[in-house]
Write a protein that binds this DNA or RNA. Structure first.
Lengths: 237, 237
DNA sequence: AGACTCGGCAAGCAAGCGCTTAGTAGATCA
DNA sequence: TGATCTACTAAGCGCTTGCTTGCCGAGTCT
């Protein structure tokens, strides 16, 4: 029947469009999300939000990228905002874990800041599609969910601020204004908004440049960025 | 008549709402916009975009803030995007003029960078409502208008990059990676996204902190930020 | 006074939005 | 083989959106 052929064609068109605009998390951040069937909607939403922003993205955009009908989303998510929230949680939880893990590498403030910056920059560069969405669109969340995300962001800020302060107290850093400097460090670590994966710098190279810039900004001794370790050799070697 | 009373009431409600959410440009950036009648729609749009973002703002939001009916906008602007474009042009033209003017103050790369940073930070802090809109929502523009804005942004980047390079060539700065460092400087100067006018720092104080941070990041001599002048005393005094 | 201009209004249109509903193909069980 | 469940679809509802239309009162000119 003509009707059936039309339907098959619509399905094929959806799948073609889907493959063209696929987002696959370089670090596999969505590989363990349950239920399994929801993953394609999450990654489709990341891709759609990345291109147009949350508010300009329609549920039909997301459904098309996920290769489903407009109603398919609602099998797993009650609202468009639920999708954004789960994405924001995953992205924020990951960088929070990374930041906390960086503290375990060493006690030295220089080594810790270097490790925090290194992990954050490589993450924001490799996952620039995800982190651009997370760091730009989280502000579209409703007040309660926004508060949860803000709490996670504040934990990261606190870790950085504490480490900078400790470095100052130990006479390793020299900082005029703690709060302004902390925010500067945090802003520099988020390279997602401008990082270009087809540009000349790999995430690792970029990270080393930014470790150097930030340590210098903190007034660390000139040779500090060499002493800070490269995250591959032993710290106390 | 009851109908007439209702209309008067609707008008009064509009005006009350308008005054509550007013945006007035601290630097008077909209004072010379023509035609005169369009100004209230521009500032209303800045206020509305600031609160919700471009895509989440409705033309009715803007009209209400401007104290007009939904149709009032279209006396001056054909589309919602036209409003955003004029706002983006005004904001970008101002900081571009400021950046170019900073070059006239001195020939010294340290003095020039200091002056650029000082002007940019005070502008982004004082006009944080406008600059937050301009720097966040300009990406919602259509391709052609976006290209015009991007060209202005690139001119600012070029000025900063050239000055950093010149400082390196003169042996005043010491920079590992020119492009990464230039972007870092540009990112740090935009304090709009986090500046809080009820916080402890005035725009001028914040600017001096950031002049210091950035000059240190560029590897300028330790005493550079003192030598850089404070923008009030004579440069060669 | 009468004609004209202009800023603004009430009303409303077409399109697109988020989301709902009723129903079904296909896998899994007995 | 038939019952049951799950993931999904076609269709569409109610509402909001950006924008248009036809109109009008106040000010300005002749």
């Amino acid at each position: 029947m003509a009707a059936k052929a039309e339907l098959a064609q619509a399905g094929a068109k959806r799948m073609a469009f889907q493959r063209e605009h696929e987002y696959v998390s370089p670090r596999g951040l969505f590989d363990n999300v349950e239920p399994k069937g929801s993953r394609r909607f999450l990654t489709a939403a990341v891709s759609a939000f990345h291109g147009r922003g949350y508010h300009a993205t329609t549920t039909r955009d997301i459904a098309t990228l996920a290769g489903s009908s407009p109603a398919g989303i609602y099998t797993y998510y009650a609202t468009k905002a639920d999708l954004l929230y789960e994405i924001a949680l995953i992205g924020h939880q990951y960088i929070l874990d990374e930041t906390e893990a960086a503290l375990l590498v060493t006690d030295d403030p220089i080594g810790r800041i270097a490790e925090i910056v290194r992990r954050s920059v490589t993450y924001h560069a490799e996952e620039h599609v995800l982190t651009r969405v997370v760091n730009r669109d989280f502000q579209a969340l409703d007040v309660q969910r926004l508060a949860t995300i803000m709490k996670m962001r504040r934990r990261i800020s606190t870790i950085v601020r504490d480490e900078v302060r400790r470095g100052v107290e130990l006479g390793i850093f020299e900082v005029d204004h703690l709060e302004g400097t902390t925010i500067a460090v945090l802003r520099l670590m988020d390279v997602a908004s401008w990082y270009n994966e087809r540009g000349p710098m790999s995430p690792d190279e970029l990270a080393e440049v930014y470790v150097g810039l930030i340590l210098r900004m903190l007034g660390a001794p000139a040779a500090a960025s060499d002493q800070a370790g490269d995250g591959k050799t032993a710290v106390n070697g």
